[in-house]
Design a protein around this nucleic acid. Structure first.
Length: 798
RNA sequence: GGGCGAGUGGCGGAACUGGUAGACGCGCUAGACUCAAAAUCUUGUGGCCUUCGGGCCGUGAGGGUUCAAGUCCCUCCUCGCCCACCA
């Protein structure tokens, strides 16, 4: 007997990890004619704390699927990489005086080491790191492609600014009016910034969401985020009386904004507003007869040209206050404040003179930043009208065609990508002496991030790169627009770096040819491997997952990608919380370290299997240390079966086939928890009736996606390969069936009948009525009987 | 305020397109082994009642549809997430 041979996970795991390290069985190569399967997780940001249990859930889902398809002999690619640019590494570097590069290198090495201890089937030759020059060279290349097509552009406007991190943020990075990194309230600051024109693809991004094999939750969030509204733009002519016209010739620098940036609007903005008219956006142009006033946002560009002299002071004051208000204050205070500008427009439908107001319930970033107020139809307009004594006129709906032009707008704004921080991908742009931007030529890429001494950003609104004086100077060829001749001219580099989301917007394509020196991705490799078949994550529902779709569509349009959606199937899993159900956090001291779980003696297989068993993949779950022990006992029982007396395997043929079917179907459906439960049931059965060799081979194969070390050991000892087993339906049907008999819908007894009798309804019902237990209930007669063959059920109504 | 989910034993959770509620695991119970403990193996385990045959109740609350409802419909309560003055 095998009393001497105990399950020692740490020994077994070390053995197999060494074999996998040396033999590289998970190296992925193009094999024409063999169906491919490309599976990846959202790559981690390697923090100093190392892997946490959330990473383990994420990576193990990917690994279980990888092995599942690998065992079915598909050509599987499962790469791995690190998202390394960003604030945490830089802030840590500032705090400790070490370089972000060194800190990141250490964290990456630690993550790699820890991931290897979990036994993942990773093709380690495809490892990527977004802060390595070999990688960010191509991030810069991507930027230049967008720039060439006019989809990377500069604009001066009010932006979210985090005063702690000293950088601007994208809309998607502001959560409840606070910075997503440090949690500090954000402010508005007027700055010239780089944007990607994601709105160019708004319609396609929206229209193609429905067809994706993604969770509905994410699809809905993306749709809401894009927020398409169909309506019209209507121009209202400003009434030109002498006072307001005169003042428009001498605009006054207004309010607090002037201390941050010059107030003169840029060319792009001054086109859309003039002192002659105001254009509004509305989804209800048919209510124009009820428009009794106009409202513009406090930030409305060119507001100073509109305001009447006697109202100027009040408007300036209101505008300054509105800009000072934090986003939280503006959200919380739903009172309809505002001031009259002293100016009027003509309602083109009624021809009446109606007043222009300024109010912060109108948002500058949406539509035109100006609305026509129809208090009879719109609740917010009515509140405003009541608060400020403005007229409410019932409106007849009308054909608006003669007053405006159809227009579609989106809630989604263009993606702000410049960051005033050091530790990011340098934007490959330089400015001539007149301040005009020029792209760095592709053959000069990468624009290397220079090593500097002091990473700290300052009040200047420029990143620490501004201090790298030598690096700033660059000579690039620029074509003179007049002569058409190209000349080398001295330029100054852009000091902003790219939002980290830019780096992660194309990494799934880099994985297909991670060492390619000529392309961002190899065209042949991309057409074989991409798009990604299964992508697994727990975050970034609208940011990353929208950006990557945007880049995919853009690069498809440029002929670089043969598909328009980057991810076929998305698995969005829940978080793992502390045993008390609260979020794990260092400050609460309730963090479970996965490496501790392994080193405590449970091993990686237990950790992995437990996290798959913990609950439905899409739901949050609470860590339960005692259940970890339960999974360990299960694996231990599997191992001990190896040493048991073997019986004739044909005895278990039904349960074996049933288990193969259940586990296979459950993994396809990502029901990992019930797949593990089915394996536990199978093992319980084997303990009762004994196990044959074939029973154990099937067990090891089915369990391998979850516990690869233990099962590799089992299969080696059993002398079997790991090819995924198939079930045969013929073993699932038995000669007899159990028929449930109900009286008035309540279970009263069960009959065992011949399978062939299931076809004979009369016979079954007669058998049921003859049963002694049933006769107790039928003495007063029977109203009706129902037989459901599919459910193997009889219901007798008395 | 709007949108989307979810409420099942002491706990985490099962239950296919309406058809045997509580799979599997944890915890607890009893036993075997042991001087003893751990480990391991074997029992039992929704609640209440029981003459030990079984009976009644039971999936957040209340109504409805149905031979039959955790599952469908209506009203309400609680929790979670997302969006939040988007004209």
């Amino acid at each position: 007997m095998g009393g001497m041979d105990r399950y020692e996970p740490l020994k077994i795991e070390e053995k197999w990890q060494k074999i996998w390290e040396e033999e590289k069985p998970y190296k992925a190569e193009t094999v024409e004619g063999v169906p491919k399967m490309y599976i990846a997780e959202m790559f981690p940001y390697p923090s100093g704390a190392g892997l946490h249990v959330g990473h383990v859930r994420n990576f193990t889902i990917v690994d279980a699927l990888t092995r599942f398809y690998e065992q079915q002999r598909l050509n599987v690619m499962r790469p791995f990489g690190y998202d390394t640019f960003g604030l945490p590494a830089e802030n840590y570097a500032i705090k400790t005086g070490r370089s972000p590069k060194d800190v990141t290198a250490e964290n990456v090495a630690n993550f790699r080491k820890q991931a290897k201890r979990l036994g993942y089937a990773i093709d380690w030759d495809r490892e990527i790191n977004t802060s390595s020059p070999e990688y960010y060279k191509w991030t810069q290349w991507c930027f230049l492609q967008l720039y060439k097509k006019g989809l990377a552009y500069q604009k001066e406007s009010y932006q979210w600014w985090c005063p702690v991190d000293q950088t601007v943020l994208a809309n998607e990075q502001v959560e409840n009016g606070c910075c997503w990194r440090c949690g500090h309230e954000v402010e508005k600051k007027k700055m010239k910034q780089w944007f990607f024109k994601i709105t160019e693809y708004a319609d396609e991004l929206l229209d193609e969401v429905d067809a994706l094999d993604w969770p509905d939750k994410i699809k809905t969030m993306q749709k809401n985020w894009i927020g398409r509204s169909v309506g019209a733009e209507i121009e209202f002519a400003i009434v030109q009386d002498s006072s307001s016209f005169a003042s428009s010739l001498a605009p006054v620098v207004m309010g607090l904004a002037s201390s941050i940036a010059p107030v003169v609007a840029n060319a792009h903005e001054s086109e859309s507003c003039s002192n002659r008219s105001i254009t509004v956006f509305t989804t209800r142009p048919d209510t124009i007869f009820g428009a009794t006033f106009l409202v513009v946002a406090p930030e409305y560009p060119g507001l100073e040209y509109i305001v009447a002299d006697d109202a100027r002071e009040a408007v300036e004051k209101y505008r300054a206050e509105a800009l000072l208000k934090s986003e939280i204050e503006r959200q919380e205070n739903k009172e309809k404040t505002g001031v009259f500008t002293g100016a009027y427009v003509i309602n083109p439908a009624t021809k009446e003179k109606i007043p222009i107001w300024v109010a912060d319930y109108v948002l500058s970033g949406y539509g035109t930043g100006a609305i026509m107020a129809v208090p009879a139809m719109d609740e917010r307009d009515r509140e405003f009208a009541e608060a400020h004594d403005l007229p409410v006129v019932e409106t007849e709906l009308c054909e608006f065609g003669q007053f405006g032009t159809p227009k579609t707008t989106y809630r989604m704004r263009d993606w702000l990508i410049s960051r005033q921080r050091y530790w990011g991908c340098p934007i490959p742009i330089a400015y001539d002496k007149d301040g005009n931007p020029h792209p760095i030529p592709e053959d000069q890429l990468p624009v290397m991030l220079p090593e500097i001494e002091d990473y700290k950003p300052d009040e200047s609104g420029r990143s620490a790169l501004a201090k790298a004086k030598d690096w700033l100077k660059v000579k690039i060829p620029v074509k003179d627009p007049k002569t058409g001749k190209t000349q080398m001219i001295e330029c100054t580099r852009e000091t902003d770096t790219l939002d980290g989301y830019a780096c992660s917007s194309w990494y799934l394509w880099r994985y297909v040819s991670p060492h390619d020196k000529k392309h961002a991705w190899d065209p042949e490799a991309i057409s074989y491997w991409a798009p990604t078949d299964i992508y697994v994550g727990a975050d970034h529902a609208v940011a990353h997952l929208l950006y990557i779709r945007f880049w995919c569509k853009f690069f498809a349009d440029q002929g670089y990608l043969p598909f328009r959606e980057p991810i076929k199937k998305l698995i969005y899993h829940g978080y793992i919380n502390a045993p008390d159900g609260k979020k794990m956090s260092k400050s609460k001291g309730n963090v479970i370290d996965p490496l501790d779980v392994i080193n405590d003696g449970y091993g990686a297989d237990t950790l992995r299997t437990y996290e798959m068993f913990i609950g439905p993949v899409e739901l949050d779950a609470a860590w339960d240390p005692r259940s970890v022990g339960g999974v360990y006992r299960f694996l231990n029982r599997c191992y001990n079966l190896l040493n048991s007396e073997k019986i004739d395997g044909s005895k278990n043929i039904t349960i074996r086939n049933k288990t193969i079917k259940k586990v296979t179907e459950d993994i396809y459906k990502c029901n990992f928890n019930t797949a593990v439960a089915a394996l536990m049931e199978y093992v319980n059965e084997l303990y009762k009736v004994g196990a044959g060799e074939e029973d154990l081979i099937v067990l090891a194969k089915l369990l391998k996606p979850f516990a690869p070390h233990l099962t590799s050991e089992m299969l080696e000892r059993l002398g079997a390969d790991d090819e995924w087993p198939k079930w045969d339906e013929k073993y699932l049907v038995s000669d007899t069936a159990e028929v449930v008999v109900q009286v008035n819908g309540k279970l009263r007894t069960k009959l065992t009948v011949e399978m062939t009798d299931l076809e004979d309804e009369d016979k079954i019902i007669k058998m049921a009525l003859k049963d002694k237990k049933i006769q107790k209930y039928t003495s007063d007669g029977i109203k009706k009987t129902i037989f459901v063959k599919k459910a193997k059920l009889v219901n007798i109504v008395v």
